[in-house]
Design a protein around this nucleic acid. Structure first.
Lengths: 199, 199
DNA sequence: CATGTATATCAACAATCGTTGACTTTATGA
DNA sequence: TCATAAAGTCAACGATTGTTGATATACATG
């Protein structure tokens, strides 16, 4: 038997592979990451990837599994919804638990599997979160718009690395994106009957 | 000799290849598009792709060449900057000339070449456009934020195809994203000295 | 028609990919 | 100790990739 702390040998390499996969998928996306690279990074054999995870696609799905953690947020004043959301999103992205988010964003543009997971995560996690703050019929639209903004910022700052976006401090992003999220969440929607409301 | 209308035979297949490349790159991204697929779609031989364009990468670069066309926009009232920008961006994306934009967005997440082109285009086209409306020192930051929002919307609506985003009418998007762009362009930036300005 | 050039075709290359199955090594338990 | 199962190694497979060079066809010009 092994100490309760230590894992079984097989589970350790299993974890090593999963970790390596997370790193490489997040770095290079699904297509440009090879099973051989993952195995090398994990100090294991490519065959073990198949043995333990069933194949590259299945490993990717596991690597892309994560949560936005919105349900853990304490109740928020409506006027600070945007800032809180922006700050939380930055925390998730830059924190340890980010794992799956960069993985997905790197691959969602060219991989339908990743795109579907992305739709699912943002559809099923952002929308319920807005339940408290918005009328039910507006939620899907607002959730999608908010998700798009957050993904756009992540794309610009972490993937494309647009220099001015990288240079911004956390405080600046929270402030500006916070205001913007408020607009997206509570701004007027121009219906087909209504007039456009400017400024 | 050929009519001045018709192109030389070689230029016709050259164009066919370029068109096919645009379609497939925009549909599947760089990695998942093969030279053989492009040639098949164009009704040509894979070897011709190399002959006429020098290789897959060079063909991709040509396919991804495009302009946002911001310099052609007439002068805009400051209060309508966001709406105009949003509308124009939708036009570009859905118009014939969009070509390079979907191509880039599909590949920029996992292809450094595409990412660099994206940085260049948005850096060199959005920033100058804002010259008239914003103080010089704020332009790079605002341009990057605006670009991120636009890319996020494009990602959500055209790539991920988030259902609520796809369902929105042009008018609704212009209105909501317009307001949001106004916020991004003219909202307060919380400096390290200044206070955060909410609502 | 004959000749030379432009254009297109074809087969094949070397490399890389995910995956497989047989094999060896290591650990476990009676 | 010895038999059994777990864990890991290895070589190879079939498929696909971008690219190449030799060869064939079409076309213009003399």
């Amino acid at each position: 038997m092994q100490e309760p702390q230590k894992l079984k040998k097989s589970d350790r390499t299993r974890l090593a592979i999963l970790t390596a996969a997370g790193t490489l998928f997040a770095q290079n996306g699904f297509d440009r990451t090879t099973v051989r690279d993952i195995a090398a990074e994990a100090g294991a054999d490519p065959a073990l990837v198949v043995r333990y995870f069933g194949g590259k696609e299945a490993l990717f799905v596991q690597s892309a599994d994560f949560s936005l953690g919105l349900e853990a947020l304490p109740p928020i004043a409506t006027s600070e919804l945007g800032q809180t959301l922006a700050g939380h999103f930055l925390d998730v992205w830059e924190g340890e638990r980010a794992g799956g988010l960069p993985v997905l964003l790197r691959s969602a543009s060219s991989n339908e599997l990743a795109a579907e997971r992305m739709r699912e995560i943002f559809g099923k996690q952002v929308a319920p979160f807005l339940r408290t703050y918005l009328p039910a019929d507006q939620i899907p639209t607002r959730a999608a718009l908010i998700s798009s903004l957050l993904l756009g910022v992540a794309l610009g700052r972490y993937i494309l690395k647009l220099p001015p976006l990288v240079a911004l401090t956390r405080q600046q992003i929270v402030s500006l994106i916070g205001q913007t999220l408020q607009t997206l969440a509570f701004g007027d929607i121009a219906g087909d009957k209504g007039e456009t409301a400017v400024s």
